[in-house]
Design a protein around this nucleic acid. Sequence first.
DNA 1: AAATAAATTTAGGTGTGACTAAATATTACT
DNA 2: AGTAATATTTAGTCACACCTAAATTTATTT
Lengths: 220, 220
Amino acid sequence: METTSIQDYLKTIFDLTRDGETASTTALATRLGIAPASVTGMVQKLAAAEPPLVHYRKHQGVTLTAGGEQAALRVIRRHRLLETYLVTTLGYAWDNVHEEACRLEHVISEEFEAKIAAALGNPERDPHGDPIPDADLRLPTDPSTPLSALRPGQGATVLMVRSDDPAFLRHVEEIGLLPGVELHIKNYSHFDQNLEVEIDSQPARVIGLAISCRIFVSVH
Amino acid sequence: METTSIQDYLKTIFDLTRDGETASTTALATRLGIAPASVTGMVQKLAAAEPPLVHYRKHQGVTLTAGGEQAALRVIRRHRLLETYLVTTLGYAWDNVHEEACRLEHVISEEFEAKIAAALGNPERDPHGDPIPDADLRLPTDPSTPLSALRPGQGATVLMVRSDDPAFLRHVEEIGLLPGVELHIKNYSHFDQNLEVEIDSQPARVIGLAISCRIFVSVH
DNA sequence: AAATAAATTTAGGTGTGACTAAATATTACT
DNA sequence: AGTAATATTTAGTCACACCTAAATTTATTT
Ligand SMILES: [Mn+2]
Ligand SMILES: [Mn+2]
Ligand SMILES: [Mn+2]
Ligand SMILES: [Mn+2]
């Protein structure tokens, strides 16, 4: 059976391996809020499952198998559809939907998933700009760049904000860096990696790396 | 902590003790689809909890404590609000909502509960006619009678249909005995306890006890 | 009032998913 | 290359919620 716990592991592994790297025990432990020893145990179980959900070599971290990736995408689809539904239909704030979705994603039926997807018109992105896998679990490869990679003179549109932290999201909202917003880079400080960014034709603001590396844009 | 399992126990005990009787181990086991021995174990835990959630004396069955009843009502409110939401807003069929609600009821936040209650305009009854406890967990005492208690000449309005079984609910729907419908008793057969019922001025139908005892009405 | 049947509890056990403490492997540093 | 620091795994434990089989209690017959 694919338990809540397993689903959250798979989702997290998917996330940690998006860059092609393997997901380390410690990284998983940190992200899941679980002791490293517990992660080792679970990861060995996932690798021993029939069919296996992860590739695992001792001390080398894990990656998802094809089956594990499908399972992860199923949960990710639900998560992002739920977040979208909570914001669009129930009036949740965008900084507040992650936890709720992370609980609901494990219990809704296929019918529920289909109903909210239809009610929303099969949306392609969640409130944070994350792409939603379609019903066949295809995820559009989108050519987004971290804001931190831009340099003065470049213009871009915010695509997504990668964080689950309500405080962080509220801060980003206050700055005005919501998905869809246009921005121009005015300045770059090489030493502290601060960017001076003009957002939506407002006076420019200085943005530190901790923020700019979590905001993904499409460059004009 | 109040686990999913505990919440389902409390809900079921609430249901089984509605008549003032205690809930027996076997009745609980049957309703929950669990071995009687397991029920004994859980019931002892609920009685030993601090504060206790049930009154328990060996071989005598259980009843809810005040605390247990509050906890049960919180879950029942969520269950019935969810059922109503699924039918009203997401277009579920009324025979199909119980299972989904029974999973969701354990994971939604207070905020979710409040949001759907507001979206529905604080409904007082779920799609089956069951009363929904209000935000303070007050449950209106409604003077409903089982249809099986009516006799020829009496007229009534259907208040609720007490079943979770999709097949049963579809059958009741096909007969036309949905909540709100008006009916008149045309005849009663003392031997098989069949009732001949005129529903919504349609030609009368014969209804057996297995059905009539699960349909509750308010007599005119 | 015994004997039998039915309901309930006890005893012992399982799988899941966490934990801590200790052992071991990998990586980084001098 | 050897040592120290860090990451990971192993070993042993726990709570939870279920199970079966056996013992016990309560209810029903005769
Ligand atoms: Mn989750
Ligand atoms: Mn999101
Ligand atoms: Mn339930
Ligand atoms: Mn109902």
